[in-house]
Each structure stands twice: as structure tokens, then as C-alpha cells.
Amino acid sequence: MNSTTSIVAILLAGILTNNMVLSKFLGICPFLGVSKKVNTAFSMSIAVILVMVIATAVTWPIYTYLLYPNFTYLQTVVFILVIAAIVQLIEVFLKKFIKPIYNALGIYLPLITTNCAVLGITMLNITDGLNFGLSLVNALAAGLGFMLAMLLFAGVRSKLDTADVPEFLKGLPITLIAAALVALSFLGFAGIGG
């Protein structure tokens, strides 16, 4: 198999056709909760990409060399604990060594522990049977897809503020319907990258 083509295919699938948020429904809470302003949406996405790639880099070897084949039933417990620990470590590390980044991303990190997109992508990498390198690419692609969806949706929501919304749809309902329309536009990508 030509590895360059598969990398491109994984990137395209992760960002467009199999978008984390809009077609797999992972990470809906931050998608709806943190997308009111474009700059907060951007910071949150960067934090998610960071945690996703590092979490994949740690959980993949743990699963492949420690849990497989005898202890696969421990996957859920081990993965969530490892992710929680990694998030804590990243937080401590950034706080100590890279203060500006901590100030920008710090508050999003605790939220990411319970973000199903991170646990979801580490598990999907295992279920899809990807090797280590492709798992990392897949995590990166999923994170970029998350970012794209967040930024697009934040843009849509900033327009919603000034829109004349019918009384009964005000608030969360119109946000969800706007999300439906954004998801609809992503259906147009179906078929790209196989």
C-alpha cells in the first residue's frame, strides 16, 4: 500500500467526510457550548488537537503491547484513566514551562478529560486497526476536523445573534437547527477520499 495516499485519504476523511462532530457525533458538548465566539472556539480546538495526538501516542502502545490480546476488556478503564492523567500532566507542564500557552488553553484542559471526542478517537484507532503512524495521522485529522466544524459553526452563530428568530425557536433549538444545516453542507463531501 502506498503510504502517502493512505495518509492523504485519512486526512481527507477525518477533516471532511467523517468529520468528528458533524458525522460521528463526538464532542457535541464543546461544539454547542464553546462555539459562541470564534476566538474561544479556536483555543478550544487547539487544546483538543494537542490532547488527541498525545493521547493517541500513549494509548496505542499501551493497548498493543500491554493489553492485547489478554486484557482487552480493560480498554475502557485504562484509556480513560490514561487520558485523565495525560491531561493533568499537560496542564502542569504548560503551567510550569510555557506560561502564555497555559493562559490561553489552560481552562479548556479539564473539560477535555470528559470530552468523548478524545476517548472516541483513541478507541476508533484501535477498532480500525491502524498502525502507530497512521493512528497519529488519524488523531490529527480528527482534531483538524473538529477545529473546522467549531470555527464554521462559531461563524454561523455570530450571525444568529442578529437574526430575527421566531420566539419558540430562540436559544438552544435554533442553535441545533443551525448545526443541522452545517452538517447538511458536510454531507456534500461524501465520497471524497473513498
Partner: peptide, 27 residues
């Protein structure tokens, strides 16, 4: 239900009750 906010989030005590939807400055 107006919109999703921090009020119902289980992790809100962990994130120092930061308002994430941009109404206050998270920094």
C-alpha cells in the same frame, strides 16, 4: 433552556467556573 452553558456542566468546578462561551474573558 436558552443555551448550553457552564451551569449544568459536571466539570465546572474543575475549570474554575470559567465562562466558556465568551461572555467573560476566560484568560
Amino acid at each position: 433552556v436558552e443555551h448550553l452553558g457552564c451551569a449544568n456542566c459536571p466539570s465546572r468546578s474543575a475549570c474554575h467556573n470559567a465562562v466558556l462561551d465568551g461572555e467573560e474573558k476566560p484568560v
